[in-house]
Structure formats: structure tokens, C-alpha cells
Design a binder for these strands. Structure first.
Lengths: 341, 341
DNA sequence: CGGGTAATTTACCACGTCGTAAATTCCATC
DNA sequence: GATGGAATTTACGACGTGGTAAATTACCCG
């Protein structure tokens, strides 16, 4: 059995409260006593009981992070960033996977899934605009991503439209004009997800450049996986749709696209230039390496944790929800080649 | 403020203990009363306080998982598997990143890093055989990987030697004989890490096939990253070392190797066959897709969580440490091509 | 060396839950 | 309707910690 404060107190010959004072750097403790207590703590290998502290303080020092799946690189890297941001503030992170399932996400919001946390960072995938009311919960909550806008909680998202536009313009600058977009939203889905917003950016770029939209270049995919990216590009090739650029709505799709292009013997970037979105680590190491939109993952994590911490602290008085978007950046690598003169 | 059991009891007109009994499915509760209490719970949106429960039970229902970094796909996928295995048992997982730093790992073992957990799964990278005594801690601990053997804790590892041997033989079967091994251990490092063991398997395969070892084919790398894999292969090519097969000690190295081979215009698998280790998701989608050793990640996670749960339960009486190794499998994909007749 | 103030330490209790044991209610039986 | 044993509910307290306020000690000054 772990020793408790009482044990330490007994060994040190002081009251438990004094031990508590030493541990919490209470100012009024004589250095002499502090030393004795410190020694006893080391001797007994005492560790404060987190449950007891949590009970006393009404806070656990743990935040939850609910993402669809850590197998998706973007979320693994996001988790990494969140853990680092939390660590800076002395917080631990409980990670849950929702599989992008709406029900799981709702359970997380209701506090059924990651219990014992002070607050939750949720990156929804299955939930949508219709679930906005479900976000009215006592649990401090910060939303990540673009499934739900205008909700009652703080929200960290990214410059989807303008960065997508910039990505497509990046392809234009390289002399491409028949740009396939991979991962477009199902037209039935009216929720303004990342897909919808990035498609808007695509259209804006076309519009600005005065290029008419070609429906056959808009590839709808369900899941944003490598597989889906490969399938979409294979279909384009099979259907003999001419294209010289690919804007994939995330890097996994782009990598799948690279794969399909490679299979078909189509050279990248000479014949087709490819740009992705998310700038996952893997993008640097594909063959060819993948140009991508860097949405500022570290900043996202940092802002999200910061917002959550503030919400946890204020604990009650409901300031209006805040929306935060870090700066994006286009990262140029081999898959888009050099700009045309 | 969240409502407590007392609040529910007041609303339902019963004692707090009866509420507790309802929540914990205590047998002697009249269904009539159970209903009333259930209604009150819903009305107040009551959630049991995990800290109080943790204090009462002496357990938190949370286990820790300490890995080097979630940015490494292997560990992200391992985390995914661990979370799933934990979920089955009603446990939550607190994830910490050590960056492979020995000190961070030791802190985790000492319980300084992931506080408030019932036990810890540790995948050490910086710690080694010399740290074996540090594992004698009250915290239930299950070790993953191959940095430390013969310690006082349960341990889940893999068939490193025999699976590495099988991987090399897989290349032999495809008519290759000059097999470069990428990621070999620094000869100074005497700890029996994965690298050392897999190198042993490589040697065993050579030995069995009667092929002499060629020192120039043994490529030492520090980090097992895509970058390192690419650098190692570039060096082989620059040094004009002849080779027709690559055994990379993990998939990241292998993907880096594919990248370097692609850059050099060397065809895979026609000129050089490549096999990796870990079977990360990404292996299925590289160009060409990567053959790999599947070490049975789900089984590893399942066994590890199971062992940890048992240790947490027994809580004291120290059964001797157990060692567990799931079966491995060679997954054949394009990078090694078909077997020679 | 007494008096008084500031510094330091302590006693007590509540945080929310649930095991234990005691109290109460129920119900079948006579 | 009283009796008794079983079923159900309740009172009490402890888990480990730290806030509050009271108690004690230290120390300065005259």
C-alpha cells in the first residue's frame, strides 16, 4: 500500500497539514521543518493521491481528447501536439477514439466516455450542425475542426477556404489548369465540413482565374483514406478524364493519389502535380515528396488547450464562445515541382 | 456545479446509499425504488464523481501508456490497439510521450509522469538493461518491446530473432542474396534492443543459407526514421555497394529506403526487393506497397492490457514475472515481388 | 523577563462514494 | 392480527487531501 500524508507526518513528527504545506510550497514553513518533511517523503517514497486531490479540488488535472482514430496520421500528430501543450501546463491527457461515429462523439460530449476529466477537446466527424444543441453541457468543451460552427463552445478551426484557394493557386502557378479535387463532399451532406469549405476554396480559385468548373474533376469520396484517394484517381484514369493537377483534401488522399498515379506510370510532377492538405510528417518522405497545406497543427493544439484551461478555470460564468484560426502555410515539395516562369 | 449522490437522493426521497446501490446494480433494491432513483438521476443529469470513486476504491480505472512518440506510426497504432483493449475492460488510457528519453522513462516508472493511474504500460527506448533495478516499483508495470529482458515485471515482446530470420529468408526465396540490413545497432550498444535481436535473425538466415556476411551491407543508423532509411540507402548507392535486397528493421526505415531507391531510379522489386518490419498501415499504400513483418500489434496490446489488469487486481502478492510473445506473420506485398520458382 | 505581534503549526472538517452493520419494512404464516 | 425471518433501506464512517480558523511558538521591544 502506498504511504499517505499521515504516514509521512508520523515519520517526520509533524501534523499531516504541515506535510501538505510542504508539498504545496506553502510560504509559512520553517526551512528546518521543510527539510525533515522532505526527507520523510523521500524515505517513504510518498506520492500524493490524485483521487483525493481531485476530490478536494474539484478538478482532476486531466483533460480528454476525443479523435476519430490515432491510426490517421493527422490525429496522431494532433494528439502529440495536444499532449505537449497539456504537459506545459501540468495536465495529463486521456485519449479516446470515436471512430468518427456520431453516437460515440455525443457520448463523449455528455461525459459518458472519458470520465474524470476537467474538460474535453473534441474533434467531431460524425456529428454535424444538427447536433449543435447537444453541445450545451456543463463539461468545458473545445471543438476542433469544421463539422460544427456557431456552437455554444470555444472552437479552433483553420482557414479552410483561403488555404484551399491558395493550394489550387499554387497549382495554377505551376502551369496547371485541369485540377482534380479529391475528397469532395457528398452533395447531400449539407453540413459545412472541411470538405465543403475546401471545395469552396477550390471554386474561388477557379473563379478568380477565370477557369470554368469541370464536374468530372470533382471526385467525391467517403472516407479520407489513402485507399479512397487511390480509388478516385484510378477512376479518373480509367474514365480517361484529362487532368494535370490534383488537389487532395488531405494528405492521406494525396498519398493514395500518388500511389495510383505511380501504378499507372504517370509521372509526378511532370505530368500531374499533386498537393495535399494537413502536412503530416509522412508527406516529407513519400516518393515524390508531397506538397501540402500546413494548417498549423501546433498552434491549433496550443490554442485549444489554452482555451480549455481558461474555461475550466472560470468554471461557470459563461463568456461568449470564441473562435480561433491559426495561420496556414503552403509547403512546397517535389509533387508540385517548381513554379512556371 | 455537478449534482452529487446526495442531490439525487434528496430528489428521489431516499438515502444516498440507495442511490449508490442503484448505480452499482446492488441486488436488493425494489424495482419501484430503482425507477424513482433512475428518474432523479436523469433529471439531475447526475454523473458519479470519478475522484471520489477512485479515492473510495483505491483505484482510478485509468492506465498509463508511455511511448516514445505518437508521431511514429508504430506507436500511434499501438496506442490505438491499447485504447481498444482497455475500452473492452472499461478502462481509460492516459498517454504520455517520453521522446525515447531515458530520464522521462524513468520518471514514468517512478510514477512521476502519469499520475493517477492504476498501472503503466511502458515502451522504453532510452532505458536499457542497466536500468533493470529501477523497475522494482510498487506501480503495476508491464514492459513492451525489447530494451530490457529478465526484469521483475511482466513483459510483452515479439519473436524478433525468428521473424527477422523469416523476413530475410523471404528475400532469399525471391532469389536475392546480397541483402542490406538497414537500422543495425551501433556495435557499442550492448543492450539487446530490437536492433540487436533482428540483426541476430539476419545472421541466422545468412548462416542457414550458407551465405557469408558482408560488413558493407550492414548499415547502422541511429534513429529508425524514414530519413535515416533514405540516408543509409543513398550511402550504399553512392559507395557503389552491390545489393539486391533490403531488410529494414522497421517500416519507416523501409519507406525511407524506397524513397532513396526511387530517387536513384532503381526499380523495386525488380532490381532491389525491400521488406520492412512492423506492418504499419502505411505499408499498404506506399509505391510500391511494402512487404513487412507483422508482429501482431493487436495481440501485443491485448496481452499487455490483460497482464496489467491482472497485476492491478492482485495488488500485492507478487507472482513471478511473465513473458509473452504473440505470433508474427510475413505480409507479402509488391516490394518483394513473387517468389522465384 | 513580561507583553504583544507575527510566524508557524495544528485541529477539524468536507469533498463524494460505498462497505459495514444496524435499522426498518415487508410478507408469509399461523 | 401477531410473529419471525427475509428483504430492503439507512446511518455511519473512512478513503487522502487541503482550506479555515484556532492554537501554539518564536521573537522583538521595552
Amino acid at each position: 500500500m502506498r504511504s499517505t500524508m499521515r504516514d509521512v507526518a508520523r515519520v517526520a513528527g509533524v501534523s499531516p497539514k504541515t506535510v501538505s504545506n510542504v508539498i504545496n510550497d506553502h510560504p509559512h514553513v520553517r526551512s528546518h521543518v521543510r527539510e525533515i518533511v522532505r526527507k520523510a517523503i523521500i524515505e517513504l517514497d510518498y506520492r500524493p493521491n490524485q483521487s483525493a486531490r481531485g476530490l478536494r479540488y474539484g478538478k482532476t488535472g486531466v483533460i480528454g481528447l476525443a479523435v476519430p482514430s490515432l491510426r490517421e496520421n493527422y490525429f496522431a500528430e494532433l494528439a502529440d501536439s495536444v499532449i505537449r501543450a497539456a504537459e506545459k501546463r501540468g495536465l495529463n491527457v486521456l485519449i479516446g477514439q470515436t471512430n468518427g461515429d456520431r453516437r460515440n462523439e455525443l457520448d463523449a460530449v455528455r461525459g459518458l466516455r472519458l470520465q474524470g476529466t476537467d474538460g474535453l477537446l473534441l474533434s467531431p466527424q460524425g456529428m454535424g450542425q444538427r447536433d449543435i444543441d447537444a453541445l450545451n453541457v456543463p463539461l468545458p468543451l473545445v471543438l476542433l475542426g469544421e463539422r460544427i460552427f456557431g456552437g455554444p463552445t470555444d472552437h479552433v478551426t483553420m482557414h479552410n477556404v483561403s488555404s484551399a484557394q491558395a493550394a489550387v493557386e499554387h497549382l495554377f502557378e505551376r502551369g496547371r489548369s485541369r485540377i482534380a479535387i479529391i475528397g469532395a463532399p457528398d452533395p447531400d451532406d449539407t453540413d459545412p465540413g472541411s470538405a465543403t469549405l475546401r471545395l469552396q476554396g477550390y471554386r474561388k480559385a477557379l473563379d478568380t482565374a477565370g477557369i470554368p468548373e469541370a464536374p468530372e474533376l470533382i471526385c467525391v469520396t467517403g472516407h479520407w483514406s489513402r485507399e479512397a484517394g487511390a480509388v478516385a484517381v484510378r477512376r479518373l484514369i480509367d474514365d480517361q478524364v484529362p487532368f494535370d493537377g490534383v488537389f487532395a483534401l488531405n494528405d492521406s488522399l494525396a498519398l493514395g493519389a500518388l500511389r495510383a498515379l505511380g501504378e499507372a506510370g504517370i509521372r509526378v510532377p511532370e505530368e500531374v502535380a499533386v498537393i495535399g492538405f494537413d502536412n503530416i510528417d509522412e508527406a516529407r518522405f513519400s516518393v515524390p515528396s508531397l506538397s501540402s497545406v500546413d494548417p498549423g497543427r501546433d498552434s491549433i493544439a496550443e490554442m485549444a488547450v489554452q482555451m480549455l484551461v481558461e474555461r475550466v478555470r472560470e468554471n461557470g460564468d459563461p463568456r461568449p464562445p470564441r473562435l480561433s484560426k491559426p495561420e496556414f502555410q503552403i509547403v512546397t515539395r517535389e509533387s508540385t515541382g517548381p513554379a512556371s516562369p
